[in-house]
């Protein structure tokens, strides 16, 4: 009888579960367009997966301030505040290397 009320949803069974890629913090999924999750032949762009979160945060902070020179990352880092950066760093740190 629920089917009549909610035709699209009534037949679905929903289960909660652990965090998946659907729960990656905002911005994180864009990074892998350049920073490969797995080793890619001949890429000079470092991987992020499995790196220490504090290292990623430090780099992003220094890119943003210009303390560490960069070709592109300074322009990207300025789009994220400390909290957002920390969430992304923690996410990548927890990914398998």
């Amino acid at each position: 009888m629920h089917r009549a009320l909610l035709p699209g949803l009534a037949s679905m069974i929903l289960l909660a579960g652990p965090a998946t890629a659907a729960d990656a913090p905002p911005g994180a999924s864009s990074c892998t367009g350049c920073h490969a999750p797995k080793k890619v032949a001949d890429s000079v762009i470092p991987r992020l997966a499995g790196r220490k979160a504090e290292d990623i945060v430090t780099f992003m902070r220094d890119y943003r301030s210009g303390a560490w020179p960069s070709s592109l990352m300074g322009r990207i880092a300025k789009g994220f505040d400390d909290q957002q950066t920390e969430a992304i760093a923690a996410w990548f740190a927890a990914q398998p290397e």
Partner: peptide, 13 residues
């Protein structure tokens, strides 16, 4: 150099 690295990475992904 980054451009060609990007291409290899994004096509692999």
């Amino acid at each position: 150099l980054y451009a060609s690295s990007w291409f290899r990475t994004i096509t692999a992904e």
